[in-house]
Amino acid sequence: MLRKVTVWAAALGVLGALAVTPVIAATTHEEPAKVHWSFEGPFGTFDQQQLQRGLKVYREVCSACHSMNLVSFQALGDPGGPFFEAKYKKSSENPYVKAFAKDFQIDDVDTDTGDKIKRPGTPADHFPAPFANEYAAKASNGGAIPPDMSLLAKAREGGPAYIYSIVSAEGYKAPPAGLTLTPGQHYNIYMPGDLSGAWTGDPNKVPIGGVIAMPPPLADNKVTYDDGTKATQDQEAKDVAAFLYWAAEPKQDQRKQIGLAVMIYLLVFTGLLYAVYRKVWKNESH
């Protein structure tokens, strides 16, 4: 039996090692800061208050430039989401969702005249994009397209901690002497990139970090939280990063819930099968 356990442990170990192997060690930027999230670990869930605060930061700050094309308003009322309330079975009937959606103007077509019109949003609509198309986004932002935020927290190594680090007070720094930035560039120690081209100092001491087109977006009291939380820059950065993780992985809470049931079932079932196996092979040498 011991041998079998070793074999399985080895197999699991190899796979585990693969899973945690830092593929391409990026050493040119600061590793994202350690943040405690409510959703970390196998039992962690979203903090609804935090998601509501983060949503407010996204809406009042980020959404001026960043789209969130893949997220619908009604998703805000789904289990785990910022507006979820158990008594509203359908998210599209949730009054908070409806009221929130109504405040947005959505592009549509008048079916009588064919004219382009704006109408108030409904729960079925998605967050409207701030720019008509990527060319407009590029033109308005000095040639850099602000990335869509629907999946940002999954599309960056480090996830929400990376987003937090970039926009927290620790991210943006005055460029060290010897680093030449062009207008519209900002130095951020958490940004991946290669600064050796812009560095005029000692070639062996190229500063870590990279340049980012986005000016520092957050500051103390940039928003006023409805729940009375003090809107420090750090708080805003955490909240918006948590919200963006929700936006990227809205089914996370269900995933872990179902996962727990599946794991319990599989452990019991495997135990039963082992008992059956022992019984069947009882009188057979092998």
Partner: peptide, 30 residues
């Protein structure tokens, strides 16, 4: 059957707790 069940435990660990660990972050950008 017993071995499959053990294998499924590992499979489920990835699906439910580390679903993107074997993938690459860049593939969440279009």
């Amino acid at each position: 059957g017993f071995a499959m069940s053990l294998f499924l435990i590992m499979f489920a660990l990835f699906v439910f707790y580390l679903p993107n660990a074997l993938g690459h972050a860049d593939n969440y950008t279009e």
